[in-house]
Design a protein around this nucleic acid. Structure first.
Lengths: 339, 339
DNA sequence: CTGAAAGCGCTAACAT
DNA sequence: ATGTTAGCGCTTTCAG
């Protein structure tokens, strides 16, 4: 059985197709233009025959899709599902749906995403990208597709961004460690080709220096933000230190790696936080459950997703294009047993 | 600047629109019908002017969308992002995109999802639903939208389902315990109003009986699948046994509860696995981190997502509609120190 | 091997 | 307050 169309509704209600469309969308001039009686009749028929609008047809006509596409680098990182959740709450309440893409941190994945976004007449994009350039953003803007960037990478390229103040966050983490008496603090970095990895690494160095704490080159262990291989790498790395020169604290660039580090430390028989304290970044749910619970920097990821979607929808539906904003989110230090 | 259309391509290449469409889609009768020279010229022009197909227009014409919608109950549960990842890998490689919806385990969320799926001419659905009924499924099937259910709930309602073979899994867990010399085996059940809770409970009873092992009523402790309150409950329960009648092993219906049980057992001074062995179900990441590491049943969630998408796409693109399958996924027993 | 043309369901300008 | 109608970009039948 074929789906009911506006034509069917019109015929059964004894009106024209235009009138049906008007009760669905109103009119651009704000007037109502449909009598209560007619409207009632039409709505009735719609329910009766189970009419549903065909978004393809509407999209073809209006060149809109009520679709927001989201690009994330790694769905396996609990951060992103939460971001998506928040975005979904906002989007759904405004009549938008979410097209989600995990790029697996690959440039190919990001390019594919861009093509999809264009093919599907996506109304707007939420991007956590590592590879897209200003020119890509410009192309989007030219095509009339507004975007919101997650993180600072694409600030000043013409779109809104929403990030957390990483310097302030890392500063508070180091305050916490220093207060606990640590001075030999190591950094398990993220992928330093990635902007966040780079920022966290560089801010760590700067902040250590400004505290007059030594940052031996050996105190830097380079990771990738991913779980894989971190435990083994950390184990080997720790074994390379004599006890008295071993770092007494490790600041991992994210919780995933911090948790792997914890495993490694325990495996070689050291105590946390007695021998080595560990802290992470992101405050993923798992941070609370590991043994010992992990100290981390967190912020309300769902709110971030919501805010991103809100910002985006305002752009999509807004008349004028105001100056792009770079919004900073406040963070929170979750001090737990691992330090 | 407006987007290029097939018309533009045709004009610039000096051919008709039909020919452009043919090089894009071939012809239904399988013939080629476009000379190599013409084809080359057309492809060239497409690149030159950056032509991209308009999915709305194509969808309107074909009543397809190359869109797969996925319904999950809780993106905060690490299981689902992995499932989605797997599904995405498969879907993208076949030219489909993913429309994702978190229902927050609410009926309203599931209903909203169904409407979206219809409005958007979704080609197929992957459903992890708690509320949808056979009538809903029937409606989808009537509308020509194939679906794949995650878990056994919608088996025999006309769609394919993909689940893990819980009976085989529990059997292997019991084999493992019996082999270790256990005969007084207790069950910390999940919520038995929940389908999984019920299945695990009933299969446990049946399998114990078929082994000739006694299942004293006192060996069943009812939980809810959630962490909350399990530790205290377990502690109290264990204290009610004289040492010689105490179960020597506990099979918890999920890892979350197993981990709480471990805490309780250790708290009252019993040894794991010496005095009481513990095993769980799900193999969540945390299972690896607790002390002692938890024996559990796990399976490859990404593969499950991949398999679901593959099954679905086969249905979407398949000619005939074969009998629905209920696929069981193979599991893996992760034997760790807790047993 | 290629072209002409109908029409998918909808919106919105214009006419009544 | 309601109706008429063009046309969005595409696929596909039919006719060269």
């Amino acid at each position: 059985m074929k789906r009911a169309t506006q034509n069917d509704v019109a015929r059964l209600a004894g009106v024209s197709r235009a009138t049906v469309s008007y009760v669905l969308n109103g009119r651009n001039d704000g007037t109502i233009r449909v009598s209560d009686e007619t409207r009632k009749k039409i709505v009735e028929v719609m329910h009766e025959i189970g009419y549903r609008v065909n978004m393809n047809a509407r999209g073809l006509k209006t060149n809109k899709s009520q679709l927001i596409a989201i690009l994330v680098p790694d769905l396996g990182n609990p951060f992103y599902p939460l971001l998506i959740r928040g975005a979904q709450k906002q989007a759904h309440s405004c009549g938008y749906r979410l097209l989600i893409s995990d790029s697996f941190s690959s440039e190919e994945g990001e390019r594919e995403f861009m093509e999809t976004a264009l093919d599907r007449s996506t109304d707007g994009l939420i991007l956590d990208s590592s590879y897209l350039e200003r020119t890509d953003i410009k192309m989007l803007l030219d095509a009339g597709i507004p975007s919101v960037g997650i993180g600072p990478r694409l600030a000043d390229s013409g779109i809104d961004t929403i990030s957390i103040d990483q310097r302030a966050a890392i500063r508070s983490l180091l305050d916490h460690l220093e207060y606990r008496g640590h001075s030999r603090i190591a950094h398990l970095s993220g992928d330093r080709n990635n902007l966040n990895g780079k920022i966290r690494y560089e801010v760590f160095l700067q902040e250590m220096k400004s505290r007059g704490l030594c940052v031996d080159e050996r105190y830097i262990l380079e990771g990738t933000f991913l779980r894989e291989g971190i435990a083994a790498k950390t184990e080997k790395w720790l074994a390379s230190f004599a006890p008295q020169e071993r770092p007494t604290a490790i600041f991992a660039a994210n919780d995933l790696m911090a948790i792997e580090a914890i495993k490694a430390i325990q495996k070689i028989g050291l105590r946390i936080p007695g021998d080595v304290a560990v802290c992470g970044f992101d405050n993923i749910p798992e941070a609370e459950y590991v043994e010992p619970p992990l100290t981390s920097i967190g912020f309300d990821v769902e709110s971030m997703g919501k805010a991103a979607a809100k910002l985006l929808i305002d752009r999509i539906e807004g008349e004028s294009y105001d100056k792009p904003q770079a919004i900073g989110l406040t963070f929170e230090l979750f001090a737990r047993k691992s330090t």
